[in-house]
Amino acid sequence: MYNIIAVDISGRHLMGEQYFMVCAAVTLSVSASQIRRVGEMNIKSFNRDRAPDVDYVVQMIEDTVDGLNTDATIVVEKGDLYNQPEWLSKIMFSQDLKYPESLSERLGIEIAHHVSLSSRRLLIRKFGIE
């Protein structure tokens, strides 16, 4: 069993005149094929008037992960980092990072995706963002 921080970003598309994005980071204890325990979660929203580039994505992930008290490897979808090779993405982060490999890591990202997506929907409804 080992710990990971699964991260996902929702809303990387233009909405009205801005990009309203929500990044979710979830700490998990996982085995190779199963999630054993879900720990902390941190959700952060970001507003931007132009499309997020790789640097901005890295910043969003780092800011969100900073709010957690767990120190573990960040697991993020390759597509979230514009399909960069893993070694290139690794050197852009201050913490260890990897792309998902095992079933449990993919499940972790799915959880983070549900969190970010539902939080974004909730925020959009609450603040009436069109």
Binding site: S31, A32, S33, Q34, E101, L103
Partner: peptide
């Protein structure tokens, strides 16, 4: 064998 198990354990349920 033990070394490999340590290295690939996270992918081997």
């Amino acid at each position: 064998v033990q070394m490999r198990l340590d290295q690939i354990g996270y992918l081997a349920p």
